[in-house]
Amino acid sequence: MSEEKLYAVKNDEGEWLNQYCFWGTETWATSDKDDREKVAKRYGGHVVAFVEEPEKVVVSPEEAKLVKNCLWTNLQDAFLNNINLLFRGRRPEDVTRLKSALTNGYTVAKDKRYLVGLDGLVTTDGAKQYLTKKDGKWFACRRMPGMHQDFTDDELKTAPKWAQQLDREEVTDDDD
């Protein structure tokens, strides 16, 4: 996150001054606050500082529950003042991260998902087959949208023993 701020000129009607000195919806922002103040004085507006929104912290589902509970029960002040008590036994860097999650917002990390290719198994038209589950049954199927073929570690622990021994490939959101 950059420490440098940007400044723009806005009037009382909520319009921005653009680079051609016309009021409208587009703005011209620079890091030179003095210049923006001169322009605001000349064209009758005021200087507005743009502040970057801090990045949200990625937390585990368990950590999200802790932070959410603090917010729901309006314990934000207690959380900030007594964070070491609330998160007893956690590493200092985790405590710092959770404090940042409370103040800057957070997103919950998704469980890793895996695709299990079945080497040597192909359909009659040559398409590779993958471990698939439907209605509690495990089987082989080509990659198909709508089929349950991306599995978490916990799901794969319930797969047949032979399937648990197979190589797995992590699925990213780009693969969806």
Rank of each mutant, 00 (worst) to 15 (best):
R42E: 08
G45M: 01
A109P: 03
A29M: 04
G24L: 00
S60L: 14
F151M: 13
S100M: 12
K68P: 04
K157I: 03
Q149L: 11
K33L: 04
V67L: 05
K112E: 10
L166N: 07
K134S: 14
R168C: 09
L156E: 04
T152F: 05
W23S: 01
V67Q: 05
F151E: 07
F22G: 00
L115Y: 03
E53L: 09
D167A: 15
E63D: 13
D12Q: 08
G44V: 01
F139K: 14
A140H: 11
K41M: 07
L80I: 13
D77I: 04
P160A: 09
K99N: 14
C70K: 05
R142Q: 14
Q164R: 14
L6C: 01
T73D: 13
E55T: 08
S2A: 06
P92Q: 07
N84M: 03
L6K: 07
E26M: 03
L80S: 10
V122Q: 06
E52K: 13
K134C: 09
D35A: 15
A101T: 05
D175F: 12
Q76Y: 03
R97G: 06
E62G: 09
Y7C: 00
Y7G: 00
H148T: 14
G126R: 11
L6R: 05
A78K: 11
N74E: 15
A64K: 10
E52L: 11
M147L: 15
E62I: 13
K38A: 13
E170T: 13
D175G: 14
L121G: 01
L131A: 12
K134G: 12
V47E: 00
L102S: 07
E93N: 07
T73W: 12
G126N: 15
Y20D: 04
E3Y: 08
T73K: 15
A163Q: 03
G117R: 08
E52H: 05
F22N: 00
D125H: 04
V95W: 04
D125L: 06
D173H: 14
A8E: 00
P145T: 13
T96S: 11
F79R: 04
P145S: 13
G24Q: 01
E93Y: 06
K33Y: 02
Q149F: 09
G136N: 10
K110R: 09
A163F: 04
E93T: 09
F87V: 13
R113T: 04
E155R: 06
N74G: 14
L166C: 07
C141Q: 15
K68M: 06
K65A: 10
K5R: 10
E37H: 02
L102R: 03
Y114C: 01
T96M: 14
Q129A: 10
E3S: 11
K110E: 15
L102W: 06
N104Y: 10
Y106F: 15
G14T: 01
F87I: 12
D77R: 11
K137V: 15
W28T: 00
P92Y: 03
L85A: 14
Y43H: 09
P160L: 11
D32K: 04
L156C: 05
D94R: 06
N74Y: 12
K41N: 06
E37Q: 05
D154Q: 15
R142M: 10
F22Q: 00
D174P: 01
D77L: 13
A109I: 02
T107W: 06
L118D: 10
N81K: 12
D135I: 01
T123Q: 06
P61S: 11
K110P: 02
Q149G: 11
D34H: 08
L118H: 03
L17I: 00
